[in-house]
Write a protein that binds this DNA or RNA. Structure first.
Length: 201
DNA sequence: TCTCAGATTAACT
DNA sequence: GTTAATCTGAGAC
């Protein structure tokens, strides 16, 4: 990493829209994690949209202690634990909805890869961030970052695509049904960059 | 108060 | 292909 690289967070207005609109536009953006002076970055290659009008969403049945961030202001981190073991990282996004968020499912690592390998305990690039629980571990994301403002250049934020980053933003966006759900499978709210090698599956 | 399913992963056979 | 690991909230009792 060089000191000349500057990442600017996306503006709040980017997140003040429906999750299904925000989710595909997040593809190709860069997730930036500052960790002990080091910079860990990855291109977002796979997302899923969730909203309070969706039976599969945590926000569907009202606010609980865990999901309260979904009902808060847009552009913040919603982090939760799944199956008692793994964390999933979401970005809150909603227009006039009472709650909404976009799940980040997979990244393409571009900076701080050695640190990610340490955190994950794995060496293969394709095993670092190709799943929701994997990327949170690779970037050391946990509940300490719950509610973080992703429009501020702090420990964690989302920036415009870095120049020369494999031209990820030129890839085509593909749409499909979401993964791992038992309800609302006919809602095509999973978005990913076509043929990217770092998709979760 | 108790039970179960879940936006998952990795280590088994 | 199958299963264990193990936390939270909803729904049953």
């Amino acid at each position: 990493m060089t000191a000349t690289e500057v990442f600017s967070p996306l503006e709040r207005s980017f997140y003040q829209r429906h999750p299904a609109t925000v989710a595909p536009e997040l593809l190709g953006k860069v997730l930036v994690r500052k960790l002990e002076g080091k910079l860990l970055c990855g291109i977002i290659v796979e997302t899923e949209a969730y909203s309070s009008e969706d039976p599969a969403s945590h926000g569907f049945r009202g606010m609980t202690e865990r999901n309260r961030a979904m009902f808060g202001p847009p552009g913040h981190a919603y982090i939760y634990r799944i199956h008692g073991l793994h964390y999933c990282f979401n970005i809150t996004a909603r227009g006039s909805l009472p709650a909404g968020a976009v799940l980040i499912r997979a990244l393409e690592p571009i900076r701080g890869i050695e640190v990610m390998q340490q955190l994950r305990g794995r060496h293969e690039l394709r095993a670092l961030t190709t799943g929701p629980g994997k990327l949170t571990k690779a970037l050391n994301i946990d509940v300490r970052l719950y509610g973080s403002d992703l429009t501020e250049p702090g420990e964690l934020f989302v920036a415009e695509a870095a120049t020369g980053a494999r031209g990820a933003q030129c890839d085509r966006v593909a749409v499909s049904g979401r993964i791992g759900l038992s309800s609302a499978l006919d809602t095509p709210w999973r978005f990913h960059l076509h043929a990217n090698p770092y998709l979760s599956r």
